[in-house]
Design a protein around this nucleic acid. Structure first.
Lengths: 129, 129
DNA sequence: TCAAGTACTAACATAAATGTAAGTTATGCG
DNA sequence: CGCATAACTTACATTTATGTTAGTACTTGA
């Protein structure tokens, strides 16, 4: 839960409400959001698939990041009324519109990251177990 | 001071060491870094100028952000041996190479930020007092 | 009956980022 | 001497982000 008022929060609102660049960064800047965006770029994935492909994230954090991205309109969550449950996540049109942003961030990192392999590796982080 | 070991730190290293996009975001993602980058994009500025143009930042935080950007090679710090002291900050070549990244982040925000004026306002945040 | 699978939630704990307020250094100027 | 200025630094405090562990509901298959 966030504080209702604090300089920290006021500054966040001030910046995200006035700086387009900061606003964009705010939406994609969570620890696991780049990894999630890259995975969903290739199509919808079930929760369990996302989780298996990111063994280092705890469930709580993964859910938190997904919920934030959903609230921001970047991804959609579709529940299939089955047992056991099935939930699929996929990029919305807004999420898909981030593609050039994602590409240029990746390209710059690929050029300038120490030890980068200089090929466009897409957020591998960890592969499926 | 950072912990010497923690899952949090391990995950940060894991991600920034494997995902080019996350690496780039890590360099430009601090609260005030977009504002600083936009200001320095037009040329070198003294510390006092930066500070006056960002009255909402505390001195400690501004210095912290500048130091991180310097350590990451995005800006350089030049001290003139005068009294009272004069220190100028400016983008390095690496920092300048972020221009297309900054532009696309700004463009996406300009398109999609609620209440955005749809003109490319460059991180105004706060004007000079 | 009992374990297994799926997609979570809750309570708790820690680490990191950000902010506050006061002090520092060095020297020119009145 | 005493004040002003620039660019900080220090010690402390708070807020936010991230992580841990255990538990939930539901049904199918062994």
């Amino acid at each position: 839960m966030r504080k209702q008022s604090s300089t920290n929060l006021e500054n966040e609102i001030l910046i995200n409400g006035n700086c387009d660049m900061a606003y964009t960064l705010d939406l994609i800047g969570g620890r696991w959001k780049p990894s999630i965006l890259w995975r969903l770029a290739y199509g919808a994935l079930r929760y369990s698939d996302l989780r298996r492909s990111l063994p280092a994230v705890s469930e709580r954090i993964l859910i938190l990041q997904l919920r934030e991205m959903e609230a921001d309109g970047l991804i959609s969550r579709k529940v299939y009324p089955e047992v056991p449950p099935r939930v699929e996540y996929q990029l919305t049109d807004l999420g898909k519109s981030l593609e050039p942003v994602i590409n240029i961030l990746t390209d710059w990192g690929s050029e300038n990251r120490p030890n980068s392999e200089k090929r466009k590796v897409r957020c591998p982080v960890l592969t499926i177990k």
